[in-house]
Design a protein around this nucleic acid. Structure first.
Lengths: 371, 371
DNA sequence: TGGCGAGTTGTAAACGCTTACACTTGAGGG
DNA sequence: CCCTCAAGTGTAAGCGTTTACAACTCGCCA
């Protein structure tokens, strides 16, 4: 005999489906049907109900709805804890798509492994809780149980996250890494087209043996693919790339500068073309060239990668291969929603193409990039 | 007589509080108490229950919980539909703080007013629904009813969002704009300190009448404050700023370039100091100077604003006033959570200070900005 | 000895929805 | 004229929690 808790959110109670039913003089079932399955209801009744709904400003209680349907129309996104444009572009795309399809997005930057993150029974192996231990079930750090699906955008697979998601049989899509698991879709960036295009673009002005690929870390998957395609494209043009035409380092301005420095010492920075692993590396090369009074693009052609804002703002503006991060986000959400609707379908792999954007650093006649 | 829907999420039913109660041989009430209010339960019983919880891997159902408590520990963030670093930095800070306090973040980029966004009764004036109209209550675009509070990060106040939030008596904090409303907290960036510091920094090397402020749009609140502080600081140094020492335009590279061009024509770009309204403007000025072979910082000192990534990557690296976006996000969330806990407390206004970061564009001896 | 309060636990009523099933009509077919 | 069937509607049982109240056990004091 709990008291009727007229516990208004704040003064006044929100209208419930009951209120609508009374106002429209029908049963709650009918109201629900009008809202979820109108074709089960006669047009006149539906109209009556709709009027009541609007008049009362009724909005279904999402908790109650979720309790019944076990759906929230909320999707989780596990993001790496990094800064930068990628992060936000990706999210932009994801959110736009989610909105378009009537979903919402819950973000969860990945907790630093070592850091705080109090242990809860959810991330402890069963039985690991010390007797008398004070910590007890709170919500897991990604609000599992609230989300209908999860997009994992973390590069290094997070065991914890992963296991928990599988346990809950939560629909999952992963980004930027191929996982060979039955029900798991992957969204990938296809470095091929852009890299090929960029290489050919450079080939149009320079002989193949004068082209260099300056990548990020050798272990990096994207850098690998880009390097490979670079080599392939040269081969297709009849040039066998020398070993020194490929370099690996880090994704930083310094590395680009450093690399250019070594060529400079050998007096070999002039008359070549550089495809960088990302825009920062390209910028490093550009700065080295400027310091050495080497003219870009006349004496040195540079193409970056990722097409960050940087590329169009720097001067000379940087040609760059555009990576469609927003599209990646959108595709992730789209795929995730599709899987929710159809859990058993075979895993798909989406590959989004990259594309060269030509600017001044590789083509004197290119627009300044519209700074 | 609905059938017992053993509707497992996917094969097997998740353990409910019932299951735990049975396993621990207590009532569901006791289990609930152990989880939410342990000091109401004897230590032995609590221990028994905890063991069962861990063993079964029980996790409270968030929908049921929300239905009862009317709390979700989810906060909404309404973001402007823009790209860029601010967006992501802000979100980073917000998410970190939310996580720290056991909350989650639901993002909602603002829908473009004109665009799609199907009309639902929630954003229609009552009665506006045409008879027979097909659209009916879906969830509002920010999952009102699911979130415990809302941080509005949109610059131009969105009537709709606002009204809806007020109607629901949803705790709200707004960013970057002061709202004089009883229960509404504001988080602001205090442009004062950084601007003053930057101006004084320039004053240390140049006479006050050689300093210029090149702002963004005249209407922009931040630009206004920055301009004012610039003038004040000059006055404090005994200089009355001439009208032409302040300029307003847009937040773009072009505008900076343009502005510098006019001074260049008057042969007046040498020997001055420029405080720009943001980094892009500063970059425009810098590029103009470089085109004119004017040495920075020797002949022209430039300070940007916002301290974006750009500032440290460009060469010479750009001195800039750092705006603590992550902190803004964190403060917003923190304040919001505080208000949820204490809805009646008076509105607070948080002001986060800005700070000058000196680099090469204004000081030859500054570090390169650690590119 | 009776009564009272504190500490612990159980009982069961909501919370606001969805939906299986039962029921009522009226049309159409044999 | 009875039976069947479809369409439209209502009834009420949950969904998995929280929590007011009742109930019981002690220990303690008058």
């Amino acid at each position: 005999m709990p008291p009727r808790k007229d516990k208004p959110v704040n003064g006044k109670r929100l209208p419930s489906i009951q209120d609508v039913a009374i106002a429209a003089d029908v049963s709650t079932a009918t109201v629900s049907r009008v809202l979820n399955n109108p074709n089960l209801v006669s047009p006149e009744t539906a109209e009556k109900v709709r009027k009541a709904v609007v008049q009362l400003g009724y909005k279904p209680n999402l908790f109650a709805q979720g309790l019944m349907t076990r759906k929230s129309r909320v999707l989780g996104i596990a993001l790496p804890d990094i800064h930068g444009e990628f992060y936000s572009e990706l999210l932009r795309g994801a959110d736009a798509e989610a909105r378009r399809r009537g979903y919402h997005i819950l973000v969860g930057t990945e907790a630093r492994k070592a850091e705080a993150q109090p242990l809860t029974p959810h991330n402890l192996p069963p039985g690991a809780l010390a007797p008398g231990s004070p910590e007890l079930p709170e919500r897991s750090n990604l609000a599992f149980g609230l989300v209908d699906g999860l997009a994992i955008m973390i590069t290094e697979p997070n065991e914890l996250l992963w296991r928990e998601a599988r346990e809950l049989a939560l629909p999952v899509v992963v980004l930027d890494v191929e996982i060979a698991e039955p029900g798991v879709d992957c969204i990938m960036v296809d470095n091929g087209p852009g890299t090929k295009e960029a290489t050919e673009h450079l080939l149009a002005a320079l002989p193949g043996d004068k082209l260099y690929f300056v990548g990020g870390p050798r272990e990096n998957f994207d850098t690998q693919r880009r390097g490979e395609t670079f080599v392939e494209t040269l081969r297709d043009a009849g040039i066998r790339a020398r070993k020194d035409q490929l370099a690996f380092g880090r994704y930083s301005v310094e590395w680009g500068y450093l690399w250019a420095g070594t060529l400079l010492k050998a007096n070999a920075l002039r008359g070549i073309g550089v495809l960088a692993g990302n825009d920062e590396i390209a910028l490093g090369v550009l700065q080295a060239a400027q310091d050495a009074r080497i003219k870009v693009p006349e004496e040195l052609r540079i193409v970056g990668y990722d097409d960050t804002r940087l590329a169009s703002l720097v001067r000379p503006s940087l040609s760059s291969v555009r990576v469609p991060m927003a599209e990646v986000g959108a595709a992730a959400i789209s795929t995730l929603i599709d899987r929710i609707a159809e859990p058993e379908r075979p895993a798909t792999i989406v590959r989004l193409p990259t594309k060269l954007v030509v600017r001044e650093s590789s083509d004197k006649n290119a627009a300044s990039g519209g700074f």
